[in-house]
Design a protein around this nucleic acid. Structure first.
Lengths: 228, 228
DNA sequence: ACAATAGTGTCTTTAAGACATTATTCA
DNA sequence: TGAATAATGTCTTAAAGACACTATTGT
């Protein structure tokens, strides 16, 4: 696999995942406590070395990591950016290909001593440059939030329109007008009603209909919730 | 530099640049003919191995490549994505961190046998997966074009508003309404007149004023040229 | 009935598109 | 003066925001 004569030394190569979810109306990121050096005992992003015999590419490598940390696949994953340099990893010149995964809360494990969800605005000190990687994930989600269905992928398969609006509001960091929001949902045919049962929330009040994403495209030509 | 014991073999790590420019009203990409294997004689993107003793990170590595190919720096550079896998490079499992650079035409060298500009819609067969990397660059530029000043960075320091509109039109692949375009430029205070001389184009006709970018932000909350 | 939550209608405001008009230069 | 190009004005259309209103449930 490595027959050719390198002119230059090769860097350490890893993948890291910013796994985001929505819990109690707050955006959270999954961290794990590092069991070994470097940064043993510190919180960090799930990740690992590329395995050339197992991984078809870095996408495959991150899929392997996600399967270990978040059960099966099927949720939204996209590449964020690649972080590199001689100092970010004390073991030497390294490259980390970072990915963002948007996962419904119930697909993630419950908190333990070594794996926990943290509010994205209340992170502990992180290993490596993982704070910058999380920041890149948040920036991506917030940037694409207004003109994509990414916020919806933080919810389960089905959801109420109130849930959906809440997801957008949390991602975008501001309140949205219900009337405008639903008008756009309708005009863009983004959601469709699920023939199944109804659902009620917070005690009394009228129960809300249940919806699911209708179209495949995850980005579109108008915004949900006004300008970015 | 490589004292720590690897559990897994390291991949080959390179950087590649999609250098885009505007020439004769067409979007073009700089390619070079590969002087040696692999893909000797084929056209490919400028790029190279990471040099751990010289490069502070992959951004530094691409800066080195760009200085060699496009003179000094100072133009727009941003990371695109990372391409990886066991087959894209016949030498073994490899990672390429791809960057996009937007460079005014006069900053680039004139065509030679080994370095040439190609229209982005008339590319020759490319080495490695460089066709996919170019496609990623175009997608990024087109995606960000409508709500950023990226198209302006394809021009020189100063330009006429007609030049600027042409740049947006080429990037977005459609015509824009001059009135709307300029209204937005004004409302967003994106350009400012240069106190210097005037300039005339294409024979007779009224000469046009000369402008330059006014504000630093490269993206903003409204689009130039309508919806994406 | 009324509190609570879900969902809709309508008016206003703002931005974009279409397109006509004015301005300034050269031949 | 007229052709050519630059620059601006105005009307129409479309979308977003504000906010009042109706609808459906439980107690």
């Amino acid at each position: 696999m490595q027959e050719f004569q390198d002119r230059y030394p090769r860097p350490i190569a890893t993948v890291d995942a910013v796994i985001l979810t929505l819990s109690d109306g707050r955006l959270q990121v999954l961290l794990h406590r590092r069991p070994e050096a470097p940064f043993s005992g510190a919180w960090g992003l799930p990740g690992g070395f590329i395995r050339q015999d197992e991984d078809h590419d870095t996408e495959g490598a991150i899929g392997r990591v996600l399967r270990e940390k978040a059960g099966t696949s099927g949720f939204w994953v996209e590449q964020l950016a690649t972080f590199s340099g001689p100092v970010r990893d004390p073991r030497g010149w390294s490259i980390s290909v970072a990915y963002m995964a948007l996962v419904p809360r119930d697909r993630l494990p419950v908190d333990t001593d070594t794996v926990r969800l943290f509010d994205v605005d209340a992170l502990p000190p992180l290993a490596f440059d993982h704070a910058a990687i999380v920041a890149a994930g948040l920036e991506r989600l917030r940037g694409k939030g207004a003109y994509s269905t990414l916020p919806a992928t933080l919810l389960g398969e089905v959801f109420t329109l109130k849930d959906l609006q809440n997801a957008y509001e949390v991602v975008l960091g501001r309140t949205l007008d219900t009337s405008s929001f639903r008008r756009r949902l309708n005009e863009m045919r983004l959601v469709e009603e699920v023939p199944g049962a109804e659902r009620r929330q917070t005690g009394s009040g009228r129960p809300s209909k249940v919806f699911r994403l209708a179209r495949d495209p995850h980005t579109f030509d108008r915004t949900l919730g006004g300008a970015v």
